[in-house]
């Protein structure tokens, strides 16, 4: 009985191992932000083609390290590498999918989209120089709202994250003080506030704390029906976080003239552009160790660009605009050496 069950288990393991060995193994690692869409795409792709994708969401920094060490077929990072870094590591980079970062508040009597902030004011709140909700700078932007004379509780991420990188990159662009004193990064020295773990942690803590402000991915703000803040963009227009506003930011970025697609999508031009838009970048080797796996990965990305848009939007991600996709496909053809 025991022996037979052991044999059965071995048989099962072999049985399972065979199809895995046959399928082309695409492995990727990195961005936790892009994990939900990658796993959904992988699911659909597997159903259509039978080829699997194994994606480990270990964080952008770790993803870059993994692709540099050639342990995965592709890496995914929320912050692009510079041209020099790409050249040094022999990597090709392109943006795969986008998301928006949205300031959210918990203020009694204020509905989503009612509160308006501009970049410098947002930076001063996160710097701790604006301490109360009825501060003159906030009042000036919101003459019609009655704001409480209470202290602002700042909620931010405690874990290193691409969301924080893009949010602080935006604050660095709109506030010289922020740029000089704090800077942009996945983990930074926060002047004020409490740290919560992950997007869900920030969303949960803002939801529980009266008079709090935080920043989360668009998907979390939308799914938790949080009170998002409207922002004033580079063109001086007040915009709401919508898919159209995120795509406008991507469309206004000058991808064609940025080697290695080095574009951070915060504070882009365009009347409709949402100022804190972010992209996840894919990193692959120019001459990969396993050319077959890389070719399979490119097939997967081609499929994702062609038929993954609807899925992305369902999960509140923003697909790349068609103009950018055709640029990327040209890059694959010219730069990747897959035999």
């Amino acid at each position: 009985m025991k022996l037979s069950s052991v044999l059965a288990a071995i048989g099962l393991m072999l049985g399972l191992a065979v199809p895995v060995a046959h399928a082309a193994d695409i492995s990727g690692a990195g961005s936790t932000f892009a994990f939900p869409i990658f796993s959904k795409w992988a699911d659909l792709y597997k159903k259509e083609t039978g080829n699997g994708l194994n994606y480990q969401s270990i964080g952008s920094g770790a993803g870059i390290k993994q692709i540099q060490a050639k342990t995965v077929t592709f890496g995914a990072s929320d912050a692009p590498l510079t041209t020099e870094e790409l050249k040094k590591a022999g990597l090709v980079q392109w943006p795969m999918v986008m998301g928006g970062i949205v300031p959210v508040v918990n203020l009694e009597g204020i509905k989503p989209g009612e509160l308006v902030l501009d970049g410098p004011t947002l930076a001063n709140i996160f710097l701790g120089t604006i301490k109360k909700w009825d501060d003159a700078a906030i009042k000036k932007l919101n003459p019609s709202l009655t704001l409480p004379a209470t202290a602002i509780t700042v909620v931010r991420r405690s874990d290193g994250s691409g969301t924080t990188f893009n949010f602080t990159d935006y604050l660095s662009k709109v506030s010289a003080t922020w740029k000089a004193d704090v800077g942009a990064g996945a983990s930074i020295e926060w002047p004020v506030g409490v740290g919560a773990k992950g997007n869900d942690g920030v969303a949960g803590n803002v939801g529980q704390t009266k008079n709090a402000i935080g920043y989360v991915e668009y998907a979390y703000a939308k799914q938790n029906k949080m009170t998002y803040v409207n922002l004033i963009n580079k063109a001086g227009k007040t915009v709401s976080p919508t898919i159209a506003a995120f795509q406008s930011a991507a469309a206004n970025a000058d991808w064609a003239n940025s080697p290695g697609y080095y574009q951070i999508l915060t504070e882009q031009a365009g009347e409709q552009s949402w100022p804190i838009t972010a992209a996840t970048f894919i990193l692959m080797h120019v001459t990969p160790k396993d050319a077959d796996a890389s070719a399979e990965a490119v097939k997967f990305f081609t499929w994702a660009f062609k038929s993954g848009d609807k899925t992305a939007e369902e999960l509140d991600y923003i697909p790349m605009p068609a103009s950018v996709v055709s640029l990327i496909e040209k890059t694959w053809a010219t730069e990747l050496k897959l035999k």
């Binding site: 936790t32 920094g61 770790a62 390290k65 405690s158 874990d159 290193g160 996945a186 983990s187 740290g195």
Partner: peptide, 14 residues
């Protein structure tokens, strides 16, 4: 808590 929070997205001296 600091190690658990920051290790994943850290590199170099950090």
């Amino acid at each position: 808590a600091a190690i658990a929070s920051e290790f994943a997205e850290s590199d170099g001296l950090h």
